[in-house]
Computed example of a mutant assay.
Amino acid sequence: MSSSRPSWSDRKLPAFFTQWRAEWKDEELTPANYLDFEGGLRFVLAAAWLFCPETVEYRDCVFLKDRFGQDTIDNWFTTLDGDRERIEAVANHVELWALFGNTPLTADDHLGEELPQLALALGESWQGVLSTRYPDREITVGVSDEEDGSYGPTVTFWTSPATSVFG
């Protein structure tokens, strides 16, 4: 899976949800029902920061606020010869395996198998949020799942000045 314009079009319900729905013997239950029954409001409120992240602008770049460190970014400017797009892509790179490092991803619950879908949903959300927040910039969101499995599903973004059809 790799995309610069993420699109979560092949939506499959997560295995844990379909199992939960089967236990309730009610195929009409939706993911929203699950959130209500299982006390998901706390998790959804926290997830808002993931799907609608806070950002900061620094040196004509946009960075995820919770991953931003001025010294680190200044070092990337030196290491990457001031290539703003590469600097943003590296600094804003989020590995979902690392993000959920305290969650066991066992074969029993299939959560590890659900992470690529989450990456696409996150990427699509970032595309919309960041494009709205920064209308004067072209936002590129990259979603990938490393072939060798070293990083697992990842999401990142970078910006460039918006180009006008009028020159």
Rank of each mutant, 00 (worst) to 15 (best):
Y151K: 15
T163C: 04
H110N: 12
A162Q: 15
R67Q: 05
V165D: 15
G69H: 14
G123P: 06
C52Y: 08
E124G: 13
K25V: 08
Y134N: 11
L105T: 07
Y34H: 07
P53V: 08
W158Q: 09
Q19S: 14
L29N: 08
M1R: 10
G167C: 00
G69V: 11
C52F: 10
F157M: 03
W126L: 01
L118H: 01
V165Q: 12
W158A: 04
T72R: 12
N102K: 12
H93K: 08
F16R: 10
N102S: 15
W158K: 08
T132N: 13
P116W: 01
F157Y: 05
L130H: 04
N92Y: 03
Q127T: 11
V155K: 00
W76S: 12
E147R: 14
F16K: 10
R5Q: 12
E124V: 01
P153M: 00
L80M: 15
F43G: 15
G101Y: 13
E113S: 10
V143T: 07
V62Y: 01
G40D: 09
N102F: 14
G39R: 08
P14K: 06
V141M: 05
S4D: 15
L122N: 11
L41A: 15
T140A: 04
T163R: 14
P161T: 12
W126M: 01
E85D: 13
R67Y: 02
E38C: 11
V155W: 02
W24H: 15
F68L: 07
E85H: 10
W49G: 13
